[in-house]
């Protein structure tokens, strides 16, 4: 090893250590406290709090509680923006048909057989993530993304045309996507509608009972933690995200020749 190389290594080591030392002394700005911060304490205390029924969010998972309860409206608009983007993609590809008459080539029979088994495995994992969104890390968006892997695999291994022949068509996926979004919307205003019927006050995006609005989604059914509105949000988001990604992936897999026939 040359002398200059040794010098370079030593100076890098000295640089890293001095930077670490300065950072640990607070020389590069405010140091976050070692203990749990105030804001986090508030979230943790109100995510699952059986002693204060008006200050709880019906699940064990703080992240899901924040996403679908504390800031549910934000997440709703995020989902709506995502939906808008997908509608835009569909609009760009309007009139482009996925021809299902020609036979798909696909990959070798070995890959096809193995992928057939993952048609069971991957959706099951996705569904478990969606249904346990209020209990363990995960939730609707993550589950939807996992489920999309099946579509990626199917398009690669079986071919897009085969997928369409098996009934995975654009209108069906669009319908599924819309059902997911409608479900999210209905869950958001569910308690308001129920309140109108039985004549009590309720808010949109309300999950558990509040001081002036004493109806809530079921937090417990028997002794099973049900998750209130979180469970419904996660399931509908799962459906919406899965259908949205599927639709875009299918559109992007259409051959250029087919697209160019319509869009010149």
């Amino acid at each position: 090893m040359k002398k200059s190389e040794i010098c370079v290594i030593i100076s890098i080591v000295i640089f890293i250590f001095s930077l670490a030392y300065i950072t640990s002394l607070g020389g590069l700005g405010y140091l976050p406290p070692v203990d749990v911060r105030k804001l986090a304490q508030i979230y943790l205390a109100s995510t699952y709090n059986p002693y204060q029924p008006t200050n709880t969010s019906s699940g064990y998972e703080s992240v899901t509680a924040i996403i679908w309860d504390f800031r549910g409206l934000d997440t709703f608009f995020e989902t709506a923006v995502f939906y808008g983007a997908i509608i835009a993609s569909v609009a760009i590809y309007r009139g482009v048909e996925i021809s299902s008459k020609k036979k798909s080539i696909g990959m070798s029979p070995i890959a096809k057989t193995v992928t057939r088994l993952s048609l069971i495995l991957i959706p099951i994992v996705a569904a478990s993530i969606a249904f346990h969104g209020h209990l363990t890390p995960g939730g609707g968006f993550q589950a939807g993304s996992v489920a999309t892997v099946v579509i990626v695999l199917s398009i690669m291994v079986f071919g897009l045309r085969r997928l369409v022949q098996k009934g995975v068509t654009k209108p069906k996926i669009l319908l599924l996507r819309s059902l997911g979004l409608i479900g999210i919307g209905l869950t958001a205003i569910g308690l308001v509608l129920a309140g109108l019927v039985i004549g009590v006050n309720a808010y949109i995006f309300q999950n558990q009972a509040k001081a002036m609005a004493e109806i809530s989604y079921p937090m417990w059914i028997d002794d099973v933690l049900f998750g209130g509105s979180l469970l419904f949000f996660n399931i509908f988001e799962f459906v919406a995200v899965m259908a949205g990604f599927t639709l875009v992936l299918m559109l992007f897999s259409i051959e250029e020749e087919e697209v160019k026939k319509v869009i010149k």
Partner: peptide, 24 residues
């Protein structure tokens, strides 16, 4: 597979698992 992946045999898991299994 659902129960195996979930790693729990609670009532919630069995019911949701049954629903998902029938659909899939």
């Amino acid at each position: 597979i659902y129960l195996f992946y979930t790693g729990s045999l609670g009532l919630f898991d069995v019911i949701t698992g049954a629903i998902v299994a029938v659909i899939i």
